[in-house]
């Protein structure tokens, strides 16, 4: 169904000022299962997502979507960041801005904006300035902005890391709705509970290397690498 996937990374490395952040990561991200990129802070999860999304260019290796048209691939993906960045305009205008940038016609913009705001439960706050919304509401608005774009792939970089538990639940519900609608989810998190709730497969990153890839259940029950086992054990009490 997807024209965009699989996304193929071949020996992708990324370094800044001689410091290696990712080293020779090779992986194929295919349509279907939600992919969770798991790892400790500083392991390279965010950088890996930014490379996939095209915000960073690899210092070595190749990243290819199955569709070689760069403009089209850009239009068919969206990203939600840990801290939502909202423009100083209404919640509604923030969504239509994204649609306008994507070249969607005016009438269609209105329709999609309403639909997306309703989906995340923010229709009643559509006229409110986006920047005065609470952190959780802003993140829901970021998801609405992504939703309106009808992406084939949605990247999420620690989308709930700065939110309280109830806001986190709301965000997770929306992410599940994305998944149910057929959008491919690629999410970075260090939260093991969240990985289990939302993920189908795990990419475990440790010190810039892709150490393990496994279905979620297998990963948590029988991690193959000692690094993954230690991470699961170390993280669980705070998950």
């Amino acid at each position: 169904m997807s024209a965009l996937l699989p996304l193929t990374l071949r020996d992708v490395s990324f370094a800044v000022d001689g410091r290696t952040i990712l080293e020779r990561v090779s992986v194929e991200i295919s349509a279907g299962p939600s992919t969770v990129i798991l790892g400790a802070n500083g392991a390279g999860k965010s950088v890996l997502m930014r490379l996939m999304h095209g915000l960073l260019a690899p210092t070595a290796g190749r990243i290819d979507w199955s569709d070689p048209d760069r403009v089209r691939t850009r239009r068919l993906q969206a990203m939600v960041f840990q801290r939502p960045v909202m423009l100083r305009r209404s919640a509604r205008a923030n969504v239509t801005f994204a649609l306008q940038a994507a070249g969607i016609a005016r009438a269609e913009r209105e329709r999609r904006t309403d639909e997306a705001l309703r989906e995340v439960g923010l229709l009643h706050l559509a006229g409110r300035s986006a920047r005065v919304l609470s952190g959780g509401e802003q993140q829901r608005l970021a998801l609405a902005r992504a939703w309106a774009l009808h992406p084939e792939v949605l990247f999420l970089d620690e989308p709930t890391a700065s939110l309280d538990p109830s806001a986190t639940r709301e965000i997770e519900t929306i992410i599940k709705a994305f998944d149910a609608s057929g959008t491919k989810i690629v999410m970075a998190t260090h939260n093991l509970g969240q990985a289990q709730r939302l993920g189908d497969e795990v990419l475990f990153i440790h010190q810039g290397r892709l150490v393990e890839r496994a279905p979620v259940e297998t990963f948590f029950k029988q991690p193959v690498s000692p690094e993954a086992a230690a991470f699961i054990k170390g993280e669980l009490p705070w998950a």
Binding site: L55, F81, R88
Partner: peptide
């Protein structure tokens, strides 16, 4: 705003205009 704008495919002159307005 850089990452968000680039993620939305906004760069160059439109990005500068968006920032000025914001």
């Amino acid at each position: 705003y850089q990452e968000q704008l680039r993620s939305l495919g906004v760069s160059g002159v439109p990005a500068a205009m968006t920032l000025l307005w914001d």
